[in-house]
């Protein structure tokens, strides 16, 4: 992050110090005060890196303690019995549930979030778009446990009608068949997660859409394009990578969400083909609900499942950040 060259406010005639001088200014701290300050700030940077490494190492160590005693296959077993001898537990159901609920959330949230971002940047009356963006910012700050409480007490009872309708008209697909239990199922979880990740996807997409060069849009308008054609031809292509990374950030949130899932879902350790029948589980939800009665070994087993979640979110977030970083490079000269 070389700010002296990126800073647009730097007047062009100011002479750039030579590379050697710059290096000395940056690292060759001569005064004791400089040395201490550099040490402190570099130290905390290194501490952050060490922390990440420590998280990986400690989780792996505790996880290995648990997995080595697992009598079932950790990756494929459909049960979670850590209290019995020999213990049998596996993450197949959790991985399935985590992925399914996140996919449902993404399918619902991404189109709506992109549409809201477009609404804010291109459709809303200018006077409205500021306050709406502000409110969406605030909604991103609502604690997840409040979403969970709302989901369990308000959303779940109101889902019955939708579930009946889906079962009547789309039950034949198998995905939407419903046996009439309480609607504490993966679909409800997915809808709640979608509501929760909507603000973050909207915010990031909005920032990206705002950076679309004015020239591109005006050129399209001058050629007689309608507003929708402007969006399709200049805004969406420019913003595509930004929207992808925004979605992946949202996905990262959805994968790791704990309390909202723990309050809404009624879990079991089976894989259900239908999204409407209650059951299944996610990594985070399983940790939160099994933790209370877990022995020390049970906690290690939960840590093992948390390690898998950690790796998954690490990959998703790393990919999202890599996409953002690449985009920054080629759009460096934002007109």
């Amino acid at each position: 992050m070389d700010i002296s060259t990126q800073d647009t406010k730097t007047p062009p005639p100011s002479p750039q110090p030579s590379a050697a001088e710059q290096k000395r200014a940056a690292h060759g701290a001569t005064r004791p005060g400089d040395r201490i300050f550099l040490g402190l700030s570099r130290g905390s940077g290194i501490l952050l890196l060490a922390l990440m490494a420590a998280i990986a190492v400690f989780l792996t160590y505790r996880a290995s303690l648990a997995i080595s005693k697992d009598d079932a296959n950790f990756l494929t077993a459909f049960e979670w019995n850590t209290g019995v001898v020999p213990p049998r537990f596996g993450i197949a159901v959790l991985a399935f549930g985590t992925i399914v609920s996140s996919i449902v959330a993404m399918v619902i949230a991404v189109p709506i979030a992109v549409a809201i971002a477009l609404f804010l940047t291109h459709y809303a009356p200018r006077k409205l778009s500021g306050p709406i963006a502000y409110v969406i910012d605030l909604l991103a700050a609502v604690p997840s446990i409040v979403y969970g409480l709302w989901g369990a007490l308000i959303l779940v009872p109101n889902m019955t009608g939708l579930f009946g309708w889906l079962d009547t008209y789309f039950g034949w697909t198998g995905i939407f068949s419903w046996e009439g239990g309480a609607p504490r199922s993966m679909l409800t979880v997915g809808i709640l997660l979608a509501i929760m990740i909507l603000p973050i996807i909207t915010n990031v997409s909005r920032e990206v859409f705002r950076q679309v060069p004015q020239m591109h849009e005006e050129a399209a308008l001058a050629l007689g394009a309608t507003r929708w054609e402007v969006i399709r031809m200049s805004v969406l292509p420019f913003g595509r990578s930004g929207v992808i990374s925004a979605s992946m950030l949202g996905l990262g949130r959805a994968l790791g969400e704990t309390m909202a899932v723990a309050t809404v879902l009624s879990p079991d350790f089976l894989i259900h083909g239908s999204l409407l029948n209650p059951g299944g589980g996610t990594f985070a939800q399983n940790i939160a609900s099994k933790f209370g009665e877990a022995t020390e070994f049970g906690r290690d087993a939960l840590i093992a499942s948390g390690l898998v979640l950690f790796v998954i979110t690490l990959l998703v977030n790393g990919a999202a950040r890599a996409i953002i970083a690449r985009r920054k490079e080629y759009s460096g000269a934002n007109a």
Binding site: R253, L255, T258, F310, T313, L314, V316, A320
Partner: peptide
């Protein structure tokens, strides 16, 4: 790190 789930 911003994306680490809180439970992790």
């Amino acid at each position: 790190m911003t994306g680490i789930p809180s439970i992790v």
